[in-house]
Design a protein around this nucleic acid. Structure first.
Length: 585
RNA sequence: GCCCUCGUAGCUUAAUGGAUAGAGCAACUGCUUGCGGAGCAGUAGGUUGUGCGUUCGAGUCGCACCGAGGGUACCA
């Protein structure tokens, strides 16, 4: 935002340093940590250290302090539109004119509106593959982290200036599907899914999984698997019908979560190309065909001359049936055939790190020059208290719909107490926004590499550092603007003696553009989650110390604009997390 | 054995190599409303797992160790 000023300041510093016999110094700008007022800091440590390295005998901290003081004497603050300049502990601190800075920030936000913080078009196309559920099975809290993380990463990448293609990859074939069909034919023939399709699908699957433990049942399932492999038309039809139910169930969940996909891949659609690729790999001598005693595998360490690093990748079972690797290889190729991708990101949990490393390496060995554009975005699991892994087999799962129902019911109570006069419909929709916001924030406010321990009370605690607090700040801002009635003042000048809470709020708002870039660069929604909370806290501090509606006309005018700007930035940051910013709650 | 990730306040967690390690829960004190609970203000809480190293400067980078979790050829 202050590029012109920075250029002028940089030139001035260079001139001074040249007099000191220092050339080609890198001038960097930082934030000044504490700021009752604010400005830019220039650390002189790197420059002093540079002198030391070039052989000059200097004590770095002392020299940095001396340079800062020398520079301070050189600066005429007014000529640069600065309020004052200080030399502190080796830093040159340049303070902006408070009123001017504040006005510029707020004007910029209100002019750019929802585009404030958006990065310039990078001309980069990024595919993000996420969610990847298995059809005919449940959707639990572990799956939720993937969808929420992937969805937020997509929004952030897009807003940062990338073109994003959202991809999903569904496990629509395999033993789990056959088990499901077996149980359906045997115990549920003719039944239709109810309102909640995923829940219903999962009940049949869970039952099938239990019954499968019995040897005679297992034999029946295997027999059905053989019919499936022979593409028995009756079974294929059943598969198509039931898969569709699953898809519709997932669609319900994605709608609820506000997610959509541009391209959906199915395991079934890459199975054949996978088999062909395996044959090709054997012909090329890269893969070893050990059938029937052993599988088809690639000894990556042998191929690369590494030891215990890439291990062995099995690409086809000894009985000729396919594995994940059989299908992930052709899928990667297909993605690059269909799209001109600059990056291809896989949002998959951390346990598959080695596996993906092997897949990427294999594609490199196959000679695909885009292999270095593949990236595994690993995230840790969601566990239950006591470090219990969520596994449907053990029955230790928290199902998605149960969780949403509980969260919504708790949110409803809050809405009831705050706004009893609203219509039931309005209450329901607000409760849902609050409930989903709370769940999403719980998932996104932890670093990707950290295990989330799912605790009902913590996830549903709407106080403190949680989405409802942020949403509430947005509502309060909206309420002030609504009560102010007529249109927002088109312009307003800011006074020099702004309250500290006003200054702090404005500074937080200036951080959005840079934080968006950082979040996109590191694929870390956490960065935005933190900023959203800080903004809400900043706004509440402002709200508690500054009157808006009852203030003098001049003050009222600029504060109304400040409130509108804060509302905008909070809404944008929530949007990047996939969280609704309601106007009433 | 080897590889990856994590270790920060009682708990959950933040911190582009830069200034006094920042929050939220829980705790404690006070105020308001009121006792089937909430809001606000404040207080307290830290040898950043341990030890070396790189650096003017390390929670952050490197190495080693300790601890937890995960992975390591036909599971996903």
């Amino acid at each position: 935002m202050f590029d012109q000023e920075k250029a002028l300041i940089t030139a001035k510093i260079r001139t001074y340093l040249a007099q000191e016999g220092i050339r080609d110094a890198q001038i960097e700008f930082r934030q000044i940590p504490f700021s009752g007022e604010w400005g830019l800091a220039v650390p002189l440590f790197p420059i002093a250290a540079g002198e030391a390295r070039s052989g000059k005998k200097v004590n770095v901290p002392q020299r940095a302090a001396a340079l800062a003081e020398g520079l301070q004497a050189e600066f005429d603050p007014e000529a640069l539109g600065l309020s004052h300049v200080e030399a502190v502990k080796g830093y040159l601190n340049l303070y902006f004119s408070t009123a001017e800075y504040a006005r510029r920030v707020v004007d910029t936000i209100l002019t750019e509106d929802g585009d404030y913080g958006r990065g310039a078009d990078k001309h980069q196309t990024v595919m993000v593959e996420y969610s990847q559920p298995n059809t005919h099975k449940s959707f639990h809290v572990g799956h939720l982290r993937n969808v929420i993380l992937g969805g937020s990463v997509c929004r952030i990448l897009e807003f940062a200036g990338n073109e994003v293609i959202r991809a999903n990859y569904l496990g629509d074939i395999g033993l789990h599907v056959v088990k499901w069909m077996w149980n359906y034919l045997k115990n549920h023939k003719g039944e239709q899914p109810g309102e909640d399709k995923t829940h219903w699908m999962n009940e049949i699957y869970a039952e099938a999984d239990r019954l499968f433990q019995e040897p005679e049942n297992e034999a029946e399932v295997r027999a059905l698997y053989a019919r499936w492999n022979a593409r028995d038309p009756e079974i294929v039809d059943l598969w198509k019908t039931t898969r569709q139910w699953s898809l519709e169930g997932f669609e319900q969940i994605y709608d609820l979560l506000g997610e959509h996909f541009d391209r959906i891949y199915f395991e079934s659609e890459v199975e054949d190309s996978g088999s062909e690729l395996v044959e090709q790999l054997i012909r090329d001598g890269l893969a070893t065909d050990g059938r029937r005693e052993k599988p088809v595998f690639i000894d990556l360490d042998a191929a690369l001359g590494t030891e215990d690093e890439y291990r062995v990748l099995v690409i086809l079972r000894s009985d000729g049936s396919s594995l994940y690797a059989t299908k992930d290889l052709p899928l990667a190729i297909q993605k690059f055939e269909e799209y001109d991708l600059d990056r291809s990101i896989y949002v998959i949990d951390v346990r598959q790190s080695l596996y993906l490393k092997q897949i990427f390496k294999t594609l490199e060995l196959l000679g695909y020059d885009w292999a270095d554009k593949l990236y595994h975005l690993a995230y840790e699991l969601v566990n239950l208290p006591g470090n219990v892994t969520m596994a449907s087999r053990e029955g230790t799962v928290v199902l998605f719909d149960d969780l949403v129902a509980e969260a919504t019911s708790r949110a409803k109570q809050i809405v009831e107490s705050k706004n009893p006069e609203l219509s039931q419909e309005a209450k329901d929709s607000i409760a849902l926004a609050v409930a989903l916001g709370a769940l999403k924030y719980t998932m996104l406010s932890r670093d990707n590499t950290k295990v989330v321990t799912f605790d009902w009370d913590a996830a549903l605690d709407f106080n403190g550092q949680a989405a409802p607090y942020i949403q509430y700040a947005h509502v309060r801002a909206g309420s002030i603007l609504r009560k102010a009635g007529s249109d927002l003042p088109e312009e307003a000048s800011f006074p020099a003696d702004l309250e500290k809470t006003e200054v702090d709020l404005i500074e937080l708002m200036t951080r959005l553009p840079a934080e968006v870039q950082r979040a996109a660069e590191d694929l870390r929604p956490l960065v935005i989650a933190n900023l959203a909370f800080d903004l809400a806290k900043g706004f509440n501090d402002f709200y508690n110390t500054c009157q808006v509606l009852n203030a003098e006309p001049d003050i009222r005018a600029y504060r109304l604009r400040l409130v509108a700007a804060a509302k905008q930035v909070i809404a944008t940051s929530l949007n990047l997390l996939g969280i609704d910013a309601p106007n009433i709650m």
